[in-house]
Each structure stands twice: as structure tokens, then as C-alpha cells.
Design a protein around this nucleic acid. Sequence first.
DNA 1: CTAAGTGCAAATCATTTGCAACCAG
DNA 2: CTGGTTGCAAATGATTTGCACTTAG
Lengths: 125, 125
Amino acid sequence: MARPSHVRNSVRELIESGDRHDWSIEDLHAGILASGLTADYSSVFRAVTWLERQGVIGQVALGDSRIRYELAGHHHDHVRCDACGAVSSLPDCLLPRAEARVEKGTGFSVTGHHLVFSGLCPACR
Amino acid sequence: MARPSHVRNSVRELIESGDRHDWSIEDLHAGILASGLTADYSSVFRAVTWLERQGVIGQVALGDSRIRYELAGHHHDHVRCDACGAVSSLPDCLLPRAEARVEKGTGFSVTGHHLVFSGLCPACR
DNA sequence: CTAAGTGCAAATCATTTGCAACCAG
DNA sequence: CTGGTTGCAAATGATTTGCACTTAG
């Protein structure tokens, strides 16, 4: 069913390139244009939606008012600079057994979590 | 400088009433109308902004695409039901010394964090 | 031919702001 | 009178959708 889609390919390539983990749709759109290719914002939106539904990428909710995406797969948490907005990711998850504790305490069955630290990055402090 | 403001009072009362910790502006607006009083959405917005600046309430970013607020003060984390959207809060913070670890690992100076667990609430599971 | 992918414009949704009327001090 | 508060309408910002055109399978 899937036909060649250069927009989807470009989006996937950008996100898989790995250096960033806080891609907004606008960032992706700009990235594609910067590489010489063309793509409409709405096409990027649809590509992102599609990739998300396929489980290739996932949303990252930073305090920021736009939706951001990163490669899905290995779970990790983030640190965000309050001053410049820079985001870094942490190598491993700091909540090894916290979920079990939450389950006991609340009665919820916990399937995951989202953790963002805030502070100042080395450059801004 | 501050004159009586029934909108601000209503918003504060609702949020201080304590049962919820995921008030959106729309929720607050609806809540005020439900109590028989009137208030414009924009006035509620301004009241919320004012209370936030005063440090009375703070934002809570749940996956949800709208900004939510809760009483500021004691820090605690949340669990959100993926099915019905219900939110509960956890009594204490589960990351006592995690911030120090993050500082060492990333070079950021960490000032806080935001943690949301996701799963299914007792009613939905 | 048929359905997927794309661009363009327009519709939504939620948040914010401008402005004039209003009112307590 | 003066400045804070409010309602109403309109501006923003970002996400989402409708539609027609193009093209791979």
C-alpha cells in the first residue's frame, strides 16, 4: 500500500540521523528545505503522523507549546535548559522500579512514564 | 493595587478546593459558570496567568494538548490514564537524588523535573 | 484504473491581546 | 480622577482537514 514518499523518507532520515531528539514539525520542514528538497508543511505533518502510527517515532512532551518527536525504541529521559531550550537525553532510565511502587500506591496499572528535568545547560549557567 | 476580582477568587477557590490537579482553563471556566457565577474565558485566562505569576498555581504538562494547572507548593508527580484521561497525583516525589545524578552526567544544573506516569486507572483496566 | 502521496488553502483549537466600558479606592 | 478588572472581538500560533492533481502499481 505504501508508495515511495520522499517526504516520509526525508523525515525518517532526519530523525534517524540521531543527533536531535526534539524535532518539531517546523524543524523537520525546515530541515527538508535546507537539504535542497521541497515538501509542504502539511505533508511533513502527515509523514510524522504516519511514522508515529507505525511506531517509528514517538512524541516527546517538553514544556514547550509544540509537539516534538524523536525516534521510538529505547526509552530515555530528557533534560531541558530553561534559558535556551536546549535538550539533552539521558543514557538510561532513572526509574528502574518506580513504576511498581506507583502501581501499589495508586491502583493504576502503569505502562510507562515521561520524565523531563529542567535546569540550565552548561552554556547558559 | 489588587482590587477585588471575583474571577480570580473563583479560580483560586476551585483550584484550592483540592480534589483536582489538572485544571485546564476551559475546565475552570466551566466550573465558574456551573457555580452560578459568570466570567469570560479571557478573564479566566488572565486570572490563571496572574495566579501563576504570583506563584499560587503552576503548570502541569500532561500529554494532553492543553495547558493544565494545579496548586503550587508541594512537589509531586502524576499518573495519567491513557483511556479516560483521569489524573492522580503521587504523595511524594520518587526522585530524591536523581537530580544530582543528572547533573553529573550532563553538566546541566538541574532545578526541577516533571514526571508523568501513564497507564490505566483502576476503573479502566 | 485505483489508491496513495502531495501541495495549497482553509478550518480548527487553544492561547493571547487590543480596546472600550466599568468600578472600587 | 486613576488604575485594575472585565467582556467582547479579533489576532496568533500550531495543528489538522478538504480537495483536486499527479503518479506509482
